[in-house]
Amino acid sequence: MELLHQIFIGPFIEMAGAPDLLVQVVWEGFVSGILYALIALGFVLIFKASGIFNFAQGIMVVFGALSLVGLHELGVPAWLAVILCIGIMFVLAVTVERVVLRPLVNQPEIILFMATIGLNTFLIGFGETVFGGEPKTMITAELGLPTGVTDVQMLGGMVSFQHIDIAAAVIAALMVATLAIFFNKSKIGRALRAVADDHQAAMSVGITLQQIWVIVWFAAGIVALVTGIMWGARSDVSFALEIVALKALPVLILGGFTSIPGAIIGGLIIGISEKLAEFYWGPMVGGSIESWVPFFVALIFLWFRPQGLFGEKIIERI
């Protein structure tokens, strides 16, 4: 009885007792949810267009952020470093398409998945060789990102909002809007959707698959770069981010592998539930439960909707 009370009632009393704290926790969850959503967005872009489960998305985030900081350390001004980083992401996209994807075309999905794990390993080694293994500090001020804190008086307490978090939310929203317009209105976007729908039909109307793949990997690379900047501004830029990026995976199964809104909403659900669980239920079992709670939340959703919240209905034929 005592235990049940502790699990099912205690935390809620705590929440109702200190609503300002609850708002703070939810806000924290909201912000990390946005970052998970951004990583998941990169996965979704690539999965939609090529059916490849790109495990290297997390390391692309680290790689983008590291090259930005690394270039700036060499004395390159911040705005130029950003442009150069976009260039690096383009080179990466072209290289991946040429070296990894093109020779592996028509192979089973699991082989391509393994290839991206290989790419993941390679990029870890490459990044560490070039930039060294130590954590670096993101050049937040040089990029013109805000760094203050606003304390808002509400619900009988103080809730503090980091300006960088607000900026992250705004930038994420802008980026999703841009991607949505790009996908729905532009010619390339239409080609991307055609490829996502059916490779062969897309090829038969004159869409070049290789080009499309370069474009999606490039788009995923830019998303990764933005995520890297945002995440790096909240903590350090280091390879530890790569493990954190694995938490974008439950976002994927929750939102569905092929849905951009799914990635966003899934990210928010995962982020908020993870922080709530960690803050209110974590102390009961010794803490750090945010490493696995997202996966269980996703599993519970999967039990009812195996294709994720917004995934396409899975229809199987014999």
């Binding site: 192979q107 082989i111 393994m114 290989g118 790419l119 390993t121 390679f122 990029l123």
Partner: peptide
């Protein structure tokens, strides 16, 4: 440390190479 970094690179590259040559 450098050997360790190179090891990652080589293992990753070899895995991709192997998958391409003999999936």
């Amino acid at each position: 440390a450098t050997v360790e970094h190179f090891r990652f690179m080589i293992v990753g590259a070899l895995i991709i190479f192997f998958l391409i040559v003999e999936p």
